[in-house]
Design a protein around this nucleic acid. Structure first.
Length: 883
DNA sequence: GTCAACACGTTTTTT
DNA sequence: ACGTGTTGAC
């Protein structure tokens, strides 16, 4: 891979082209929309810059304008800018926004990407310097664990006492700190009977023979290569004229070293971050990196972005009062010129269930425009919305949009460009208004479900909300959970593709050898492993020998023989061409492997593989609740293949782009963890579970002491600053923790909130008794709440109406005219007792009771559940309706 | 080699 | 409480 003529490329890069010089004189309209601090950050192009960008201060705007400015002034060509982010999403957004600013798609910014994708690009070019071939595979956590398991048992260590997971964690930690086996401090290698370091070394050896790397290696290998090859490093240092780093507070030691090495050339490095939002210490992030920036880069310019464009003053003040309890901050104070809004609301509840119930009710109220908050006269949003629209349109803030209808179209088709101007809210009001053809009462304010989020500390808190929302028919979406490519069926399918494209991929082969069941157990697998090791060949070839020499018997023999024959046949149909990108697009390496005429497309081949292997059939015959979903996912996987040229290209992509925001459609409330919410914003935010032990997390404090506590506090800060208009913090007096009831203490973070910016909805000490009062006079304590719920006019409940809307769309039987009439419940629910139904989460079940819009369903696998009819489907319709 | 009973460990998550 | 992963019986 060393055949690139680096120096020629650098020479050419050193001189700006004519077109670049012409560009330099172009006007820079993007500078106009910036505030003074942002402008300073954009224009300070040379030398080290640290941009301290608080939450909601327009850091992405500053960052993207900076890139545009670099290009526009001819300081750098697109391929001379190294811009790194942590997530693919952030990278994509940056690319899109730069393109938007430049007015055209930017061709070739090959070095804009995540740390990992940029490192893969580098490592593919210099793989041999790490003892690898350039077509190395990238293993994910699952493969990593399985490999370590083998090594642990091979070393004769009791796997029960020393689990592979733990070793993986230790090794990851070392890699995060850029420690190769040789550099691990002796004292730290004492785990695993003193053999942790040894196992680490074995693992690295094994990876090398497998021609594979794990995620941590991507950075580690590049740091090592650059440290050992100063000449190569110098080339890259010259090549990257400008370096930009997003979320700098999240960098670990390896990333820091890598950046520092590369930045030593031109020293044009701009790091953007917020020390107050460092919440990933537990996975190796070093806040120290950002705190130390000025020492690392003497003469660095530090620019603070403190004007907040997201939240109301009370929200900012409350967040600021909490975070001020932390020590060792670089210090920032966010401010806004927005008019006064609501105070942060604080409410205590009897237990987690009441809390979830209250949040559900409150969301319905905010959505329906009947919340106490919604009627606030002071609400800046209560102004006549059309006036607001006209004002913005006149100001040109809506980008040429003239009519509300146009805005609506724009909103639907391209969400983001208009977002800055808070058009989402406006949009919602306008749509409501057109639909109803009646003027909205200016004192009422409604929120779309999309504008509401519930942010929790730990994912197990989500359950109470899901349960409650299911019963009241409140549509929700959970962010997090297993990602698409991490799902079992997807990984299985991909393992098949991996073996077909790379027959030497032992880990993949091991995964599929008995999936579906082929009668191959430990014994048979061991025979194959022995045969492979004895001959120094791959497992697949070892299996050939094992079959040929009769080492396998009966079922196993037949199964493996069949699999081998299948794999050979599929491989012969596979077209392989892998393209490894270079520094520039011209020097990409294209590798042809067994180029066979394409008789069938790779998509057809994939279907064939899944079909003929019996894998599809395996799930079709599976009666578990997840089976239909899994088949659905497989279909999706095959569809995703269409966007690639061949299987190999697809696999290369998937290893790094593990995101699957399969954008569920429809108005839904979002439930997610505080960590997942970083970088996002919502008009309405609920922050439940602020209790000692849960938040701040006991474990965090136990394991990391004050450091842990401060990170939790930053998490609280992140949570509050997600809210644009309304932020509600809550806690429960009692909570069931691991099946055990515990009485809880309100979080210390609650005490740290400045009372001046908090609206306390619970008189202290009376959590439970006042839950109803707190809900805005809706009920009055628990018993009266139950009472009210029992008498509630279900046919007028929001959940019922939504269910009707959904049923109508699906062409289900419509109920009789209903508003206040009492009607036969069985006629209105479209279900009868005994019907078989399907629920996305609980699977198949049988209706055993019907009360209005609520069905009690005995699920085959999850037992009885009571939920709104709109959330289930007749069993025979399962699989074809998106939830 | 496959299935049911039990022990275990439960924060946060990207690539 | 609950799901996962390992142990033991067939």
């Amino acid at each position: 891979m060393s055949s690139f003529n680096e120096d020629d490329a650098f020479e050419a890069a050193a001189r700006p082209s004519l077109s670049q010089m012409a560009m330099a004189s172009r006007p820079a309209p993007y500078l106009d929309g910036l505030n003074p601090a942002q402008r300073e950050a954009v224009e300070a192009l040379d030398g080290p810059v640290l941009m301290l960008a608080g939450a909601g201060t327009g850091k992405t705007k500053a960052l993207t304008c900076r890139i545009a400015h670099l290009l526009n002034t001819g300081r750098a060509r697109p391929n001379e800018i190294l811009a790194v982010t942590f997530t693919n999403k952030a990278a994509r957004e940056m690319k899109d926004r730069v393109a938007g600013l430049m007015g055209h798609a930017i061709e070739g910014m090959p070095w804009l990407g995540t740390f990992h994708s940029v490192c893969v690009r580098q490592l593919r070019r210099h793989a041999e310097l790490a003892g690898l071939r350039s077509n190395f595979t990238i293993l994910d956590t699952d493969d990593q664990i399985r490999l370590l398991k083998q090594l642990i048992s091979a070393a004769g260590i009791d796997e029960k006492r020393w689990p592979a997971r733990q070793l993986a964690g230790i090794i990851d930690g070392w890699k995060n700190r850029a420690l190769t086996p040789g550099k691990v401090p002796g004292a730290e290698g004492a785990e695993f009977n003193g053999r942790a370091t040894r196992l680490y070394a074995d693992y690295q050896e094994r990876l090398k023979t497998l021609n594979a790397v794990d995620f941590g290696d991507l950075l580690l290998h590049m740091v090592t290569i650059f440290q050992e090859h100063p000449d190569l490093l110098a080339q890259y240092q010259r090549w990257y004229r400008y370096i930009l780093v997003d979320e700098y507070q999240d960098t670990n030691v390896a990333q820091y070293l890598w950046l520092r090495l590369l930045a030593q050339g031109h020293r044009n490095i701009c790091c953007v971050g917020d020390d107050d939002q460092s919440i990933y210490g537990w996975r190796g992030a070093e806040v120290g990196n950002i705190l130390r920036f000025e020492k690392d880069f003497p003469g660095a310019k530090v620019i603070r972005l403190e004007q907040n464009y997201r939240s109301t003053p009370h929200i900012l003040a409350a967040a600021s009062s909490v975070i001020s309890a932390n020590t060792g901050r670089l210090g920032k104070e966010l401010w806004t010129d927005v008019a006064e809004g609501e105070k942060v609301r604080l409410i205590g509840h009897w237990d987690g269930e009441v809390e979830a119930r209250w949040v559900g009710e409150e969301i319905e109220a905010l959505h329906g425009g009947t919340s106490r908050y919604a009627k606030q006269r002071n609400n800046p949003r209560s102004k006549d919305i059309v006036q607001e629209f006209e004002r913005l349109a006149k100001k040109g803030a809506l980008g040429g949009v003239r009519t509300p209808e146009e805005l609506y179209e724009r909103f639907r088709t391209q969400n983001s460009p208009l977002k800055e101007f808070k058009t989402r809210k406006l949009m919602w009001d306008l749509t409501e208004r057109w639909q109803n053809e009646e003027p909205l009462h200016p004192a009422f304010h409604r929120f779309s479900m999309e504008e509401i989020a519930i942010l929790v500390r730990a994912s197990h808190q989500m359950r109470a909300f899901e349960d409650r929302f299911l019963t009241i028919g409140l549509p929700y979406r959970v962010i997090g959970g297993p990602r698409f490519y991490e799902r079992m069926e997807i990984r299985d399918a991909m393992a098949y593709f991996r073996v077909v494209t790379q027959p030497s991929d032992d880990l993949a082969f091991e995964r599929i050898i008995n999936t579906p069941k082929r009668g191959v157990g430990d014994k048979a697998l061991q025979e194959i492993q022995i045969a492979a090791r004895a001959n120094g060949m791959s497992l697949l070839d070892g299996a050939r020998i094992a079959v040929g020499e009769g080492l396998l018997k009966g079922k196993a023999k037949a199964g493996v023989a069949q699999l081998i024959a299948d794999l050979d046949r599929w491989a012969s149909l596979n077209v392989q061409q892998i393209r490894y990108p270079g520094v520039d697009d011209e020097d990409a390496v294209v590798e042809d492997v067994d180029y066979a005429p394409a008789e069938i497309s790779h998509v057809e081949l994939a279907e064939k593989i899944l079909d003929e292997s019996g894998y599809t059939a395996m799930w079709q015959n599976d009666k578990s609740p997840e089976a239909p979903g899994r088949l659905e996912n497989l279909k999706e996987l095959v569809k995703a293949l269409e966007q690639f040229d061949n299987l190999a290209g697809f696999l290369e992509h998937v290893a790094l782009i593990m995101d699957n925001e399969s954008e569920e459609q429809g108005e839904k409330v979002t439930i997610m963890t505080l960590h997942a919410a970083k970088g996002l914003e919502f008009p309405v935010v609920f922050l439940p579970g602020w209790e000692e032990g849960l938040f701040p997390s006991q474990r965090s404090m136990d394991e990391n002491g004050l450091k842990g506590l401060e990170e939790e506090r930053r998490l609280a800060y992140v949570g509050i600053t997600r809210a644009e208009e309304l932020c509600t913090i809550s806690f429960a007096a009692n909570r069931r923790v691991y099946g055990q009831w515990q009485s809880q203490l309100a979080s210390r973070f609650i005490d740290e909130l400045d009372p001046e910016h908090v609206d306390v909805m619970t008189p202290s000490g009376l959590y439970g008794a006042n839950a109803g009062f707190a809900a805005g006079g809706a009920g009055g304590g628990m018993s009266s709440f139950e009472d009210r719920a029992a008498k509630a006019d279900v046919y007028n409940s929001p959940g019922w109406k939504r269910m009707q809307a959904r049923a109508g769309q699906r062409g289900m039987r419509q109920p009789a005219e209903s508003r206040h009439m009492v009607i036969d419940a069985t006629a209105t629910s479209a279900y009868t007792v005994g019907d078989r139904v399907f629920h996305k989460k609980f699977g198949y079940g049988e209706v055993i009771e019907i009360e209005g819009d609520k069905l009690t369903i005995e699920f085959d696998h999850s037992g009885p559940k009571k939920l709104v009819a709109g959330f289930v489907l007749p069993a025979d319709q399962a699989g074809d309706v998106p939830f």
